[in-house]
């Protein structure tokens, strides 16, 4: 998608009040609608609301084309042991296209492991941003809430900008925000499962009260999942497998880009309330009368 076509879409949106709360139920929020509508995390503005992961791509070349098609401005990497035969670096791809690197702590099971990995990432990559992952077991890859909160507190105290991968638990999300996390990133469903958002209501609850960006961080399988996340009030979507393991990653990356944009626009526009019965959009007045005996009687 070219930059110009993207601009033309956003230009069509009237400068109406932003609905930062209650968009799904039709209530409107504070009137503040910057035309550019940037995503702001820890004081840093990003134009794209799609954060990509780099895991699962069959090759660096496929990954590079998918990242470009996605329009992402920030992308995760993992920290692993340096091997002498380490092939072409994912970092060189990110640097070549000016994409921010977001190191994660994938594979860490304790707060201690995650904190040490974050410190190493900061040293290696020169960023104090970290996607904090502390998982409980290999089968579900679900976060360990106790270790996660512990690690988040430590890293915030050490000056990190912490983006925690968390359960879709409104209470835990609030506690992560309270210790100073720059965003909260609930999972829609287990990592790599493609099961979408299993508990949309929890996402609404989290997004309604959060003062930091809420980012769908796992489970997206296809474009409608990403759009739903944005409609529920997420500020951004982070995904990897849905794109990198799609049959045509570059095409899915473009689809996700459009879905995130569409979902965001719909959220800001404020959807119509759901109704039990139909509500005609054509006027009832002025309808012709034909005297057709087969016409049913009006109730």
């Amino acid at each position: 998608m070219s930059g110009s076509s993207y601009s033309s879409v956003t230009d069509l949106v009237p400068d109406t009040p932003d609905t930062t709360i209650g968009a799904v139920t039709g209530r409107t929020g504070p009137a503040s609608a910057p035309a550019s509508d940037p995503l702001v995390i820890g004081g840093t503005e990003l134009t794209s609301r799609l954060i990509m992961g780099t895991g699962g791509a069959p090759s660096l070349d496929v990954l590079e084309r998918a990242l470009l098609a996605s329009g992402t401005e920030m992308t995760t990497v993992a920290m692993r042991r340096l091997a002498p035969e380490t092939p072409g670096s994912v970092l060189s791809v990110l640097r070549a296209h000016g994409i921010r690197v977001l190191p994660n702590t994938a594979g860490c099971y304790t707060a201690g492991e995650a904190v040490l990995t974050a410190r190493l990432a900061r040293e290696a990559l020169g960023t104090d941003w970290v996607k904090l992952e502390v998982i409980a077991d290999e089968r579900t890859l679900l976060p360990d809430p106790v270790e996660l909160l512990d690690a988040a507190q430590t890293l915030v105290d050490e000056g990190f900008t912490v983006l925690p991968y968390t359960n879709d638990d409104p209470v835990l999300a609030r506690k992560l925000e309270d210790v100073g996390c720059a965003a909260v990133m609930p999972l829609g469903s287990p990592i790599g499962s493609g099961l979408g958002i299993r508990n949309p209501h929890n996402f609404e609850l989290i997004a309604e009260r959060a003062r930091v960006p809420v980012i769908l961080d796992a489970g997206a399988g296809t474009a409608s999942d990403a759009a739903l996340a944005m409609e529920l009030g997420c500020a951004a979507v982070l995904l990897a497998s849905a794109v990198t393991r799609a049959q045509r990653p570059e095409l899915m990356a473009a689809g996700m880009r459009h879905a995130v944009t569409a979902g965001r626009l719909a959220y800001r526009a404020g959807r119509i309330p759901r109704r039990h019965f139909a509500r005609a959009s054509s006027p009832a007045e002025g309808t012709a009368e034909w005297g057709d005996p087969e016409r049913p009687a009006v109730e």
Binding site: V77, A78, M79, R81, T86, L91, P103, A121, E133
Partner: peptide, 10 residues
């Protein structure tokens, strides 16, 4: 000694 670098992931 642990020596780490960035790889595709996440």
């Amino acid at each position: 000694v642990e020596i780490l670098t960035a790889v595709q992931g996440g």
